[in-house]
Design a protein around this nucleic acid. Structure first.
Length: 262
DNA sequence: CCGGATGTTCACCT
DNA sequence: GAGGTGAACATCCG
């Protein structure tokens, strides 16, 4: 699920937990905690704190929590399949796997309140819970910086533009689906070296990056792009009908149109 | 049974 | 040092 669009929906959902005090936590499998963090340390740090804000930086959800025991930020990363539930309801697609299966077996972490709870449900367990996460390795959130900054941040080196878009230390928030959609709209091939971009292409890309993210956010998810339905083996370009190419770029599967993405 | 999946990290090359 | 590759993580789905 989660790229920036999904985590932004999680943030809105999490804001319904603002003002609630953490009574206890549930961590059925401590492998779900970030490096060096133990259940005991996390429990001691956050029990009794009240959530005062829900923020997002890139794909990370941040829960600011304060109380007599101090002030902490609970950081949630959702990996590929993590979802957020507050009081048992999800922000999105709660029935993607059908009603037959007991998804509660995938609950990896919970903040329990006097009334209700906030849960992370993650089949693949690639997500993580962190305490006071170090965000220094993340670039600016892609929806916060202006296009001029984005144009500069992209750089002009020999890396593939798609690898740069996926690099969270350059810009935080863009994942594999958003990257393919952005490059599709920009008419730029994923393997293009950033130094080969003309100033016009660079400027257009810099505008299209946040614009595309906002558009898919409005539509309701990173998987609702124009390219997405064709993003499969045998798919045809929705613009010109050309057979899409499927290549690995930046380490990820990339679908693109060889006719209009140049 | 096999390959692939919206993410991140690490070891190992070049 | 920079950048790429592949594996690992763990599980489900087609």
């Amino acid at each position: 699920m989660p790229e920036l669009c999904e985590v932004e929906q999680y943030r809105v959902l999490a804001s319904t937990a603002v003002g609630r005090a953490i009574t206890s936590i549930r961590v059925p499998d401590d492998r779900y905690l970030g490096r060096g963090l133990t259940v005991g340390a996390l429990r001691a740090a956050v029990t009794g704190l009240t959530i005062v804000d829900a923020r997002r930086h890139g794909k990370v959800l941040l829960l600011d929590s304060v109380g007599g025991a101090g002030r902490h930020v609970i950081g949630l990363r959702f990996g590929m399949t993590g979802r957020l539930l507050v009081d048992g309801s999800a922000a999105i697609d709660s029935l993607i796997y059908g009603p037959t299966r007991d998804e509660s077996a995938w609950d990896r972490f919970a903040l329990v309140f006097d009334h209700g709870d906030l849960r992370v449900r993650d089949a693949r367990r690639l997500g993580r819970v962190e305490l006071d996460p170090d965000l220094r390795r993340l670039g600016p959130d892609v929806l916060v910086v202006d296009p001029e900054h984005i144009g500069v941040a992209i750089g002009a080196g020999d890396r593939a533009i798609k690898a740069v878009l996926l690099d969270q230390s350059v810009l935080a928030g863009v994942g594999n689906l958003l990257a393919d959609e952005i490059l599709f709209r920009a008419g730029v091939a994923p393997g293009r070296q950033t130094r080969s971009l003309s100033s016009g292409e660079r400027a257009r890309l810099a505008e299209l990056i946040p614009e595309t993210v906002r558009d898919l956010l409005d539509r309701g998810g990173s998987h609702l792009g124009d390219l997405q339905p064709s993003r499969r083996p045998g798919g045809a370009c929705p613009i010109d009908g050309t057979a899409l190419r499927r290549d690995t770029v930046g380490g990820r599967t990339s679908f693109w149109c060889p006719a209009h993405q140049v």
